[in-house]
Amino acid sequence: MNSNWKQLFEILHKPERLIIGLMSGTSLDGLDIALCAVNGSGPATKLKVLEFTTVPYSIEFKREVKAIFSRRDADLQMVCLMNEKIALQHAELILDTLETWGRIPAEIDVIASHGQTIFHAPLALHGIPDYPNATLQIGDGDHIAVKTGIITIADFRQKHLAAGGEGAPLAVYGDYLLFSKQGEDRIMLNIGGIANFTYLPADQDASKVFSTDVGPGNTMMDQYIQQHYPGLYFDEHAAIASTGTVNEALLTALLTNEFLNADFPKTTGPELFNLGYLSRAQELSGTLALNKEDVLATLCACSAKVILTAVQKCFGVTATPHIYMSGGGMHNPLLVNMLKSGLPKAKFRTTADLGINPDAKEAVLFALLANETLVGEKTDFGKREGVPSIRMGKICLPD
């Protein structure tokens, strides 16, 4: 038997698998690396996070990724080169991190790599007739597998597209298995560059579960900071935005977009919500001369509003869902206070209350998806558009 398949066969029959989950988001702050011990599969999955770290990217590496990120005019040669370079960089960070943790590659069964999204183009966003939903994550899985010597499962989003989805968000598949609870309506709210959530009904009926993007999370705030405050990548603890005042005219213009009124599930990205979007909103509202603090405060209010509107669309204004937060936006006290004020009866927590470090959650979810690729049976999410009942990921062998 081929030695790779023999190794896979042995992994499939282990009572517990050690899986490294990787996540590099649109914020480009660094690589999240989560080492997970996973038992079972499907609703019987038991997962424990053994180690977690975020390795910051260098300024030069961020610059290289940004040169091709969310750009229609990206240099095709650089896209090709960065596909390999990102993978090699991630592999090096994994090996360094394993050494820091006192572990060796031979201990790890599988790496689950999300890759780096550089462009997201669902039909609802690109609007080009006769062309399908599309998305592109780079950071080739074969390069990671060969450099680390560890079987790597990568490129998860393409199967979602092939089965009729929009390629995002994928959190529904892991959230349902890890976090559903009988008798408790839950919203698993992730505030990354784009804000998204998974709805988990109290009756645990998988056919009612869905994940959806809702609109901008941190992306426009971070882009604005990087443009106007050299040396800063984000507004830490909302120190700048908290000194500003929300401008209602600008806020109204920011909230005027077809995507924000579209039905769930839906997906978007920085391809829509970016500084060009902000500039157009300022022109429409006559706020081009607005001071920077007020712009940031208004961008924060915009993110809060799209999240609040989406939750209220699911549950109503007087709803009392349990909302478990993750992602960088949960560290923004101004944003969190706006959410709590807008949903005073909701119970806000983080996934730490469910035993998962909220900063690690997305990396953990990809470890879980890899486990399902290996040993899981398909969970039936019904026939709803955008939530195909599938297993995802391509298996990349070390040799």
Rank of each mutant, 00 (worst) to 15 (best):
K85D: 12
P132L: 05
T26V: 02
L250W: 02
D109Y: 01
T53Q: 13
E64C: 09
E377H: 04
K361W: 01
I104N: 08
P56K: 15
I323D: 06
P358Q: 02
T256E: 14
F234N: 12
Y324N: 09
P129T: 05
A163C: 08
L31F: 04
L170Q: 03
A363H: 00
I187H: 06
A44Q: 12
H90V: 07
R103K: 14
S207I: 01
K313H: 09
I150W: 02
S285C: 03
G276R: 04
V306T: 15
R384W: 06
G25V: 00
Q223F: 15
Y229F: 14
L47Q: 05
V336T: 12
L125Y: 03
Q77G: 03
D175P: 08
Y199M: 04
N291A: 10
G386W: 12
V49N: 05
T53G: 03
Q77W: 10
S326L: 07
Y131I: 05
A319H: 08
I390E: 04
L365T: 00
F179I: 00
K62A: 01
G382P: 07
I59F: 10
L18I: 12
D155S: 14
V55F: 03
R72C: 02
A253K: 05
N357S: 12
V387H: 15
E10G: 01
D359V: 00
G382E: 08
I151E: 05
D32K: 10
I138C: 04
I240T: 04
R63K: 15
T350R: 06
N257D: 15
V375S: 07
N4E: 15
L255H: 02
F366L: 07
D73W: 08
K159N: 10
N196T: 00
D205Y: 05
D142T: 09
G328N: 11
K46W: 00
C300T: 13
Q137I: 05
E107N: 10
L170M: 06
A241R: 04
E51W: 00
L232C: 10
